[in-house]
Design a protein around this nucleic acid. Structure first.
Length: 420
RNA sequence: GCGAGAUUGGUGAAGUGGUUAACACGCCGGAUUGUGGCUCCGGUAUGCGUGGGUUCGAUUCCCACAUCUCGCCCCA
């Protein structure tokens, strides 16, 4: 037997319905915020991710699915969505008319070569959105607002963890101060951190091993190194978030794994005891330098991405209601070939008129057709009998009250419309 | 990349170095030649993750591998 690849999964049955429900909620709210749907390829030139996500991030250093295709091209299965969107923005010259920012959202599979565990698979689904072309703080607030409200609509209690890295000047000043502070103490930190100090010192702040270390607690804070403009931005953002009644807290140790962020960075945190790190349901931030870094015109942008699988898991843990339709309107029962023929066109008629209709395709005996109808949770049964069909009538049975009524076939649609 | 535990029909599972792998659910058939969901009877794994090994004999013991689950790391 050929089995699925490690860290992948099939989605079907109830799981598929839950997924579709989440998709529907996402589609609806993105529409309200006036974001449009975008699809980009699942594989891209490897270089795209090396340059955008950053060679210093673990994602690119050891988690990408890389291969060369038959034309000897270096290909990578996308580990995240933003890089592709920015590539598409540049390649399709969406910057040509930026009288309004480009606002897009995507849903699709991402790939990271990792050891699977709860809430983490090698192929996973991310939903994300990007707002490209505005540096206005209100756009930061909008992105956080949309991130926040999606979870609210899905019935999850979440909190925004917020920080700012400042502009390049602030970030560089801070980086320098941090390195100077950490260098003398580096021996006391974990091995990973010893490596990080050279390639990505900010990440040390987020280290899980050293998180309780006095050294990190006393480390210089990003906020103290912001220049005036960056600080004003941050204060303005907090003001907007308060006006929007968004539950957030500032955490100066929040940096993010990807290299391309500046100014605003944030995460969406659930509060589920048994989840641990999985409580990070999504994250995002501003990446004003990325478009230019990928050979586009200097363009400010901000975005967010969330793990769909993890979000659904959180909803299940919280016993959040999924609004799922799991019953059908009508089940048609018959006993012989003549009645079966009648069933075929009644079925057609009902479906074209908007009813969810089913019948038996297994040549079940009559009593098992009842069982099937129950399994489908049919609200009404239509029972075909030759005797009634002579008068062009069928029995309609309310499967809840068990009441039956003889209805003319031509009146069926109207009759069911009235009842349902 | 490191560590721990699992793997028996469609499902939940019990079990043993040796004839027919328990039980339950589900499904199918019958009692009941077209109005059921109750009941009763019958049927339903030539198979115990894969490949080796030990043995007269392995689903059961040993080894390797795969996959799953859960940690660490990392992230969403």
């Amino acid at each position: 037997m050929i089995t699925k690849q490690k860290g992948t999964y099939d989605v079907y049955g109830l799981d598929a319905k839950k997924r579709k429900y989440v998709y529907d909620v996402i589609d609806a709210i993105c529409e309200k915020y006036n974001y449009t749907y975008i699809e980009t390829p699942i594989f891209e030139a490897s270089e795209l991710f090396h340059r955008s996500v950053g060679d210093s991030s673990d994602i690119v250093r050891k988690e990408t699915y890389d291969f060369t295709d038959r034309g000897n091209r270096n290909i990578t299965l996308r580990p995240e969505g933003t890089a592709s969107i920015v590539r598409s923005f540049i390649e399709n010259k969406m910057y040509g008319n930026l009288s309004e920012p480009v606002k897009v959202y995507y849903v699709g599979p991402m790939f990271r070569y990792e050891r699977p565990q709860s809430g983490r698979t090698r192929q996973f689904t991310q939903f994300g959105f990007e707002l490209i072309g505005s540096d206005d703080v209100l756009s930061d607030a909008e992105v956080i607002s949309l991130s926040y409200n999606i979870y609210k609509l899905l019935g999850l209690d979440v909190k925004i963890r917020l920080n700012t890295l400042g502009d390049n000047e602030s970030r560089n000043n801070y980086r320098e101060a941090l390195v100077n502070y950490l260098k003398p103490n580096i021996d006391k930190l974990c091995d990973d951190c010893k490596e990080r100090i050279n390639i990505n010192p900010l990440r040390i702040l987020d280290c899980k091993v050293d998180k309780d270390s006095e050294i990190l607690k006393n480390a210089p804070k990003t906020l103290d190194y912001l220049n005036e403009e960056s600080l004003n931005r941050f204060n303005k953002l907090k003001e907007y978030l308060e006006l929007m009644d968004i539950d957030y807290e500032v955490d100066t140790n929040l940096v993010r794994g990807l290299d391309y962020y500046n100014h605003t960075v944030f995460e969406v945190i659930a509060n589920i005891k048994e989840f641990g790190n999985e409580n990070v349901l999504g994250g995002g931030g501003r990446y004003n330098g990325l478009v230019e870094m990928l050979d586009g015109p200097s363009t400010p942008a901000i975005g967010f991405a969330m793990g769909l699988d993890r979000t659904i898991l959180a909803m299940e843990t919280k016993e959040t209601k999924f609004d799922i339709k799991d019953n059908i309107d009508v089940y048609i029962m018959y006993g012989n070939d003549e009645e079966k023929e009648t069933a075929s066109y009644i079925l057609q008629d009902l479906r074209l008129n908007g009813f969810i209709a089913e019948t038996d395709y297994m040549n079940k005996q009559f009593k098992n057709q009842f069982k099937s109808a129950d399994r489908f949770k049919a609200k009404y049964l239509i029972i075909l009998k030759n005797d009634d069909l002579k008068d062009f009538k069928v029995t309609v049975k309310d499967n809840l009250t068990k009441e039956e009524e003889l209805v003319n076939i031509n009146d069926l649609v109207d009759y069911l419309d009235m009842k349902l």
